[in-house]
Design a protein around this nucleic acid. Structure first.
Length: 265
DNA sequence: AGATTCGGCGT
DNA sequence: ACGCCGAATCT
């Protein structure tokens, strides 16, 4: 059988492409195309590939059958109503091929992304009507409870904690809920985050809570808090730097090995 | 069980 | 006409 897996230059290093001719039945003579990830997982359609690669690779102009990037394969979709969300279907997840360039990581709230091309007519896509100033439920932040950063195998990487002196007013009074609430407030609103200024809110949150602010007592940020945060940011940047150089080394040695192997076969 | 192969639905 | 994926068949 024609079992040749060829390298696919349009995809990240290590990905292989295979074409299998159907040899019987009504569809004899037609062919099926498969891709194999560097780890050996088989992919038999573009949606499946897209799901796996996420926004790591722009598959918008990738032609699954030929395995090549086809410039101008863009705007494939049927005409859509102006002003509806591109690439986002009603009941489901964004279509990774056509969705607007919105940052998918680092913040659970979508932020715009600058698309860098060498073309002079560069544009910065602005965020689609952020879901701000919509009416919100009291203590809606509880839905965010338990959010964690994790790696691909669901291992929890790191937890965060809040400075002492932040006192929650939420019914469950857990730091966990409050952390999510403050994080989302910082991402959602451009106004200062102060906590609940009204003394009434402390006595009866269910009535007096200001939904524009996280459910905690008013607080002040000290120089000490700022120093501590600076250290955390510095350390986070350091470990990101280490991870990136380690990844870079791994990739170059990998491709070097592949090149050597190719010469002898 | 996992891999392979073709049918056939939906667009 | 063809992409995609279910499921029958094979190993």
């Amino acid at each position: 059988m024609e079992r040749k897996r060829t390298d696919c230059p349009a995809l990240p290093p290590g990905w292989k492409k295979e074409e299998v001719i159907r040899k019987s039945g009504l569809s004899a003579g037609k062919s099926d195309v498969y891709y194999y990830s560097p780890t050996g997982k088989k992919f038999r359609s573009k949606p499946q590939l897209s799901r796996y690669l996420g926004n790591t690779v722009a598959l918008g102009c990738f032609d699954f059958r030929t395995g090549k990037m086809m410039p101008g394969k863009l705007q494939k979709n049927k005409q859509r109503l102006r002003h509806d969300l591109h690439g986002v279907v009603k009941g489901g997840k964004p279509d990774l091929n056509t969705a607007l360039p919105i940052r998918q990581t680092a913040s659970i709230f979508k932020q715009p992304v600058t698309k860098v091309t060498s073309h002079p007519s560069n544009k910065v896509k602005t965020d689609v009507q952020r879901a701000t100033d919509q009416p919100r439920q009291l203590f809606w932040e509880k839905r965010l409870k338990g959010l964690r950063s994790s790696d691909v195998s669901q291992e929890v990487l790191r937890t965060m904690d809040l400075p002492k002196g932040l006192q929650s007013l939420a019914p469950d009074s857990s730091d966990d809920t409050l952390l999510s609430a403050i994080a989302s407030a910082l991402h959602t609103s451009s106004a200062p985050i102060t906590g609940q200024m009204s003394a009434a809110a402390e006595k009866n949150p269910t009535i007096w809570l200001n939904t524009g602010q996280p459910p905690c007592k008013a607080f002040t940020v000290t120089e000490q808090h700022i120093r501590e945060q600076e250290v955390k940011v510095y350390q986070a940047r350091r470990s990101l730097e280490e991870a990136l150089t380690a990844d870079g080394l791994a990739r170059t040695t990998e491709t070097t090995r592949d090149l050597l192997k190719g010469k002898t076969s």
